[in-house]
Design a protein around this nucleic acid. Structure first.
Length: 1112
RNA sequence: GCUGAAGUGGUGGAAUUGGUAGACACGUUGGACUUAAAAUCCAAUGGCCAUUAUGGCCGUGCGGGUUCAAGUCCCGCCUUCAGUACCA
């Protein structure tokens, strides 16, 4: 009986499906084990041989664990929302759900034919409303939470509201937007509901905010940072620009520290942890504020005169407190006017008790630079001060109008009229040209505060908001030109061109916090607007970039390091330095000086220790159709959550999947896309009345939304009451082994950890890390095949061999002449364009099937093509290709389809071969030809059990040798699986089968346990032979054979005898021989004497059981 | 630049705590079987030099070092791949 793999594999795949062999139960006496694969995006192209690599490895592990007696959860599903289905829909009009369902069908068929032990009863699809109901649910949970740094966890938003109501936000230590204004409890209670909602949005873990996003015009959507590679989109490689848009964001930055710390307790690869660490980018240092000395209009010389409202004190915090207090306790007139200004639909927005420089003004419209003061009783002295203040403010471009209490209370209409008039005649200015309150200094972040005495200039990013405000008239032209020039350069250009040093002097100066010296302020594009504060204190002696900048612009480079040579480059080695020329820091090392300087900065209120993270909040809105809709509608522009009990909010039907004509996301095309708060359902847009029917959110969630909790949903996938039951999560707890690609390091794997930590804070999951151990499988690369087209004569193709002889300078000349015989045209030089040939047209000897290629070219209307081969090739009638290893991809025509492999060699061969290729984590090229090795191994295995007459396994006692082979195999395979060294087990199986064949072993005592060893790798053949041995139950849960040391015990060892470390010959000696006897025996051997040639050995090293080394 | 991984035959790779480098395969060559092919089986296969067998020399990216002994440990380089990047 021959090994009929096609029949056998089909039989067992059907058997497993029918008997639900791999269905996992949520209750079991067995210990649990959760093996997870990263679920695939079902693309239209189907699987190629690279895709199943990780699945095969995890399947082997899962099957092994079942043999070990574990209750194994090994689920699979589909990450089925995504761009390709949508783009296909745009092109063809076919609904993405249909495309997706078809693709899933293909995937399922392909996965099934490889014989995975997935529990398909738990399948999830992220695009299934039953599934995304819970994605929406988590979104609502995040919305209703804030992050409390005091308790260091997410809490319900109600606890924040309670704090606001009782004490305002001054003492709240929360993850929030940078620009929250301080308010008291009284303020809070007085705020309109809309204002309260706006403030809460600044604290929620998912929030709507105008953010600068990565906009990809070609794709018509925003992208997250991890979806951009080298400044272009990961998918398609389109340009990405920065754009301001109102978007949902996830406050992942709140978890930065915990995401970093959590890496310590999980068994993930170092490479992966390291890239998450880099992505989080923690730097410890200090923030320092340098007061601004000169402003436009002021003198350029340092220290002489400051702008009027810059008194230069350090009391902004005190003033802010004061302003807050005044806001909380307005006079009657102020309160009256405020309520009018706020509620009147004025075109411009007013702020109350606002800080302008060091002055607190009653009301200000920053856009129009209009200040309104309401005066009580006026004393003379007050009058004078007011006049002075008015003058100063008006000098700086503000208009101040004053009203008395009586005017406001008595004739509020009149007062408002005159305010409106003022507003109408004043031209508005861009909001960002208004100095922010308290912006009397430039704040920088530095990791080296200890070098503060080495600061010789300050550098701002060209985009820094203060640039336009501090630049002096004399420098304005230069600065404007520079800012414009940098703005024109794309992100990519700036990245590509790091070497060129550019910058400009603003004319402004800041004051050194300790020396009180004036420090010039420059701008330069080596400072990034997006990191830290967008400004650096430049210490050229200690930072190479500052050093280069200083050299280039001839700025001073003071040395503050004892004995450091800074004539050629900066001295950046912070661990080997003593600070000098630094006043009270002299003689201290980096650590001591850092501590001391931070204390000093805190004392004078100009700085403090600070930790900065590179991790930015994640934009969560996508302008796409094929994604999860938000459970959000808008009342007066403010987002409202739909109650979780009405979920899921399913995707509406749309006419077309493109953005609307007005540039709204595709959901803007939906006609039934409004929320009725009475009926609590989605209704037609025509019914929108902004009373009970409101517009729904038009964005959808990004691809990573659905994948950030799917691993928990597998535990209880059909639960409609909860995302998962507590019983299920407490049983399965967390993923024990997760296998997937490393390309998800800073996307999926970071977001999932974030959501898991959030779920942990909410008490929903028992662990705040979802995957205990993670392994990255390496990529399988394709072996592309090339032939070469003559550039000048595009219908001619030359073979790899012709091309190679052209490339060789020795044969180049004659090759050109040779080619010319065919082209008939004299060509002085020839240019070749490499052309990818479909690897399926090429045999294992690198010969291309010319006629298939010709047919293929014909499809693209290329007729009359001609081939040029060497004389040699022509003789053997072959056309060779050249080979090169590249990423497997459709466009490179090097994709190998597993279907064909399963057809030709069987799934077991495919599984073994994928493992045999090399270590799991490694990148390795695919070469189908090699599969014959594992395939003939399986045939040999089969022959060990079967011959033409059927089963030949007998009950005979096994030989000693066979037992030894078996147990050495058990030991090795078990170790290999536990170390994820699957490639070496395959070799071990081959050795075992070769040995047992040589031993003519037919003993059941050997061959039965051998099947269990092999069954995780090649389950079909194992099941088949297992059944033929008489078993009625599947081999899947048969116990793993127990290794018995005694079968490996040897009585003698073939010792390698080496001379000066070089092995010369071997000697068989008993293992229980003493060191001395071994030495004696070896020295007496005639070959030893031969080697020594009469010399006496200086030393003889005997390691019993290992080696003998003779030093001569 | 930084971080991580890796450099071993013609190819994929083995050598788990320093102890016979190249396991196991592919490929190649020769042979058997066959009208022939496929399949199967046998043998050889790191390089060089010898050859009447025995044998000898070199060899794990390069240069040093430690050791009786180094692919493995240490120091200094080089190269490749991946990630990240003017991160203050």
């Amino acid at each position: 009986m021959t090994y009929d793999f096609n029949t056998i594999e089909k039989k067992w795949q059907d058997y497993w499906a029918k008997h639900q062999t791999f269905k996992a139960e949520n209750h079991s006496d067995k210990p649990k084990f959760y093996v997870l694969d990263m679920f695939p995006y079902p693309s239209g192209a189907g699987l190629h041989v690279g895709h199943p690599l990780g699945y095969i490895a995890s399947d082997i592990y899962a099957r092994y664990k079942r043999h070990q007696g574990f209750n194994v959860l090994h689920p699979q599903g589909y990450d089925s929302f995504g761009l390709p289905a949508e783009q296909y829909a745009i092109q063809t009009g076919q609904h993405p759900a249909i495309t997706t369902a078809e693709n899933i069908k293909t995937y399922r068929r392909q996965l099934d034919q490889i014989g995975f032990s997935f529990d398909w009863s738990r399948e999830v699809r992220t695009s299934d409303p039953k599934y995304y109901k819970w994605t929406q649910w988590i979104f609502i949970q995040l919305y209703n939470s804030w992050y409390n740094y005091n308790s260091n966890k997410a809490e319900d938003i109600s606890s924040l509201i309670a704090i606001f109501e009782s004490e305002g936000n001054t003492k709240v230590n929360a993850a929030c937007d940078d620009d929250v204004t301080l308010f008291s409890a009284a303020d809070w209670n007085q705020f309109s509901s809309e204002e309260q909602q706006k403030i809460l949005l600044q604290y929620r873990l998912t929030y709507l905010a105008e953010t600068e996003v990565n906009w990809c015009p070609e794709l018509g959507t925003v992208l997250a940072n991890d979806e951009i590679v080298n400044g272009v989109s990961e998918r398609g490689g389109h340009t990405v620009i920065r754009k301001k848009m109102t978007q949902w964001s996830m406050r992942i930055s709140a978890y930065a520290e915990r995401l970093l710390q959590g890496l310590e307790k999980i068994d993930w690869t170092d490479a992966l942890k390291e890239s998450q660490r880099n992505w989080i980018g923690k730097s410890v240092g200090a923030s320092v504020t340098f007061p601004i000395l000169s402003f436009p209009g002021g003198e350029e010389k340092a220290g002489t005169k400051k702008p009027g409202y810059m008194t230069g004190g350090n009391n902004s915090a005190i003033l802010l407190e004061k302003a807050k207090a005044m806001r909380a306790n307005p006079t009657e007139a102020e309160a009256a006017l405020w309520s009018q200004l706020r509620n009147k639909n004025l075109e411009s927005k007013f702020r109350q008790q606002h800080l302008i420089g060091d002055f607190i003004v009653d009301f200000v419209c920053l856009r129009k630079r209009l200040i309104i003061e309401v005066d009580g009783k006026i004393h003379d002295s007050q009058k004078e001060a007011d006049a002075q203040r008015t003058e100063i403010l008006e000098n700086d471009g503000f208009k101040v109008i004053r009203f008395t209490n009586e005017e406001v209370l008595g004739n509020i209409e009149g007062v408002l009229k005159s305010i409106e008039h003022e507003l109408s005649i004043r031209s508005s200015i861009e909001p960002d040209s208004v100095p922010p309150p308290g912006a009397r200094g430039i704040e920088v972040f530095t990791t080296r505060p200890d070098t503060i005495f080495g600061v010789s200039f300050m550098t701002l990013a060209p985009e820094h908001e203060l640039v336009s405000k501090i630049t002096t008239p004399a420098q304005k032209a230069e600065v404007d030109a520079y800012v414009e020039a940098t703005a024109k350069r794309s992100e990519r250009e700036r990245m590509a061109d790091v070497k060129t040093i550019t910058g400009a002097f603003t004319g402004a100066y800041v004051e050194h916090p300790f020396t009180k010296e004036a420090i010039p302020v420059w701008i330069g594009d080596y400072v990034l607007a997006g990191y830290g504060t967008g400004a650096v204190m430049s210490v050229p002696c200690g930072d190479q970039r500052d050093y280069d900048f200083a050299k280039h612009f001839n700025l001073p480079i003071p040395n503050i390091f004892e004995g450091a040579d800074i004539s050629e480059e900066a001295f950046a080695d912070k661990d080997n330095t003593i600070i000098a020329n630094s006043d009270f820091l002299n003689g201290l090392n980096h650590k001591e000086a850092t501590k001391k300087i931070i204390e000093a900065l805190e004392k004078i209120g100009q700085g403090k220790g600070k930790i900065n993270y590179r991790l930015r909040d994640a934009v969560f809105s996508r302008q796409r159709y094929w994604g999860e809709p938000f459970p959000v509608y808008y009342v007066d522009g403010m987002p409202q959550m739909i109650d979780a009990k009405y979920l899921p909010i399913t995707l509406p039907e749309v006419e077309k999947y493109l953005p609307t004509e007005t540039g709204e996301p595709p959901l803007g095309n939906a006609t039934v896309w409004a929320w009725d708060t009475d009926k609590n359902k989605v209704v037609s847009n025509d019914l929108i009345d902004h009373k009970t029917v409101f517009p729904l959110e038009l964005n959808t969630m990004p691809g990573w939304a659905g994948s950030s909790q799917y691993f928990n949903r597998y535990m209880d996938p059909h639960n409609d009451e909860a995302i998962f039951s507590q019983e299920a999560i407490n049983y399965w707890q967390q993923v024990d082994l997760y296998i997937g690609g490393s390309e998800h390091a800073t996307g999926h794997l970071l977001y999932s950890r974030f959501w898991q930590k959030f779920m942990f804070d909410k008490g929903l999951v028992p662990y705040d890390e979802f995957a205990k151990k993670l392994i990255n499988q390496g990529m399988i690369l394709g072996t592309s095949a090339f032939i070469y087209r003559i550039n000048e004569k595009p219908n001619f193709f030359v073979s790899g061999e012709v091309y190679n002889s052209y490339k060789d300078p020795k044969t180049r000349k004659e090759t050109i002449e040779y080619i010319q015989k065919f082209t008939g045209q004299s060509l002085s030089s020839i240019q070749f364009d490499p052309v990818h040939v479909d690897v399926n047209y090429v045999n294992s000897s690198n010969e291309m099937d010319v006629s298939t290629f010709r047919k293929w070219m014909k499809k693209y209307k290329y007729d009359h093509i001609k081939f040029i081969t060497t004389e040699e090739e022509t003789k053997r009638d072959s056309f060779t290709v050249n080979r090169d290893v590249e990423k497997m991809s459709k466009s490179k025509y090097n994709v190998v389809n597993p279907d064909q492999i399963c057809e030709d060699y069987g799934a077991d061969s495919l599984r073994l071969y994928e493992m045999f290729l090399g270590p799991l984590e490694q990148y390795k090229p695919w070469n189908t030809a090699g599969i014959t090795g594992v395939h003939s191994f399986l045939k040999k295995l089969w022959k060990l059990y079967m011959d033409d007459n059927g089963l030949k396994v007998t009950e005979t006692e096994p030989s000693k040798d066979s037992l030894k082979t078996l147990h050495k195999t058990i030991k090795k395979v078990q170790e290999d699986i536990e170390n994820f060294s699957f490639n070496t087990s395959v070799s071990t199986f081959m050795i075992a089968v070769n040995e047992l064949t040589a031993q003519k072993c037919h003993s059941k005592a050997i061959l039965e346990p051998l099947l269990v060893l092999i069954s995780p790798y090649a389950p079909h053949i194992a099941e088949e032979l297992w059944e033929r041995l008489g078993h009625k139950e599947s081999i899947a849960t048969a116990p793993f054979p127990i290794f018995d040391e005694q079968h490996l015990v040897e009585s003698s060892k073939n010792y390698p005898i080496s001379f000066n470390g070089k092995m010369r010959f071997t000697m068989e000696l008993p293992l229980d021989m003493s060191k001395e006897d071994i030495e004696k025996a070896v020295l007496e051997n005639e070959k030893t004497q031969e080697q020594l040639a009469g010399r006496t050995p200086k030393k003889v090293i005997v390691v019993p059981g290992k080696i003998v080394n003779i030093v001569g």
